[in-house]
Design a protein around this nucleic acid. Sequence first.
DNA 1: CTATATTAAGACAAATTACTCTTATTATCA
DNA 2: TGATAATAAGAGTAATTTGTCTTAATATAG
Lengths: 142, 142
Amino acid sequence: MSLIFSRQCEYAIQALIYLAKKTETEWISIKEIADHINIPQHFLGKIFQMLSNKGILKSKKGLQGGFCLSKPSSDINLKDIVDTIDGVAYSTACVAGFPNCSNDSPCPLHNSWKDLREGIVKMLKMRNLKQMADEISKPGYN
Amino acid sequence: MSLIFSRQCEYAIQALIYLAKKTETEWISIKEIADHINIPQHFLGKIFQMLSNKGILKSKKGLQGGFCLSKPSSDINLKDIVDTIDGVAYSTACVAGFPNCSNDSPCPLHNSWKDLREGIVKMLKMRNLKQMADEISKPGYN
DNA sequence: CTATATTAAGACAAATTACTCTTATTATCA
DNA sequence: TGATAATAAGAGTAATTTGTCTTAATATAG
Ligand code: FES
Ligand code: FES
């Protein structure tokens, strides 16, 4: 199969958007999030564990515990999330798997791909969690 | 990790470009191809087996056997290859994994993503094996 | 304080993807 | 025409990704 982002990354994006809709000081449990966006609870737990280690989230154990964003939602963009979970290969490696992707040693797809790739990176940098949380709250959005 | 296309798909693209450089009637062995583009021989065997079943390649067993394209290389475009191996999800499913990607029930990324996705699809349709084989033969290409 | 329920963390298991080894087919040549 | 070597096909294995079950931590109530 292979889509653009890994399953983990997709879940993370959805979960963080949900988190960004909450007040900044609230601790939200993975159970609540997993139930709302309908993904496996403990898988999300592992993803959030990593995002905590990487400094994107804060966690608190025990009753009344949970997770919350470690920065204002407007300061976390999509690229931060994607790069943390999936790495940066999508923005640097050859789309056809040839070694050494660069303008100097291009593959036959390089010139066609370069601009599309830049577009993707630019978009990921542009969109932050606050915007997306606002947008998903509008009627008609899923 | 997760790049745009699966490993299988990357290998297929590279191998088919190699094949497209040969004369149309020649039978080329997976060994020759795998050695040249430096990928696992028998893994390529399985990929080519599938592409044969799907009608993109023809195969011939035994001594002097091998594979060759079932159509002129100018009639096989990248989208044919990618869709056959990885499916069409990359061009239809939500980039963030939300259910029901459409203009009517968009996720917060949908409008940013739509055009980029169309660009990718258009590019894949545009590029055929003949072009790419010609291009990779030029000096400086890898 | 102690018991309890809630929670994240961590160990474990299943599914998928990537890769390798073995077998069956067939053209060639003695 | 039978032996041989080259070849695709297919069975088997390893690694990675995804998903589940168990344990440890802690706030709260009694
Ligand atoms: S070399 Fe293939 S995309 Fe750059
Ligand atoms: S709904 Fe997310 S990309 Fe279309």
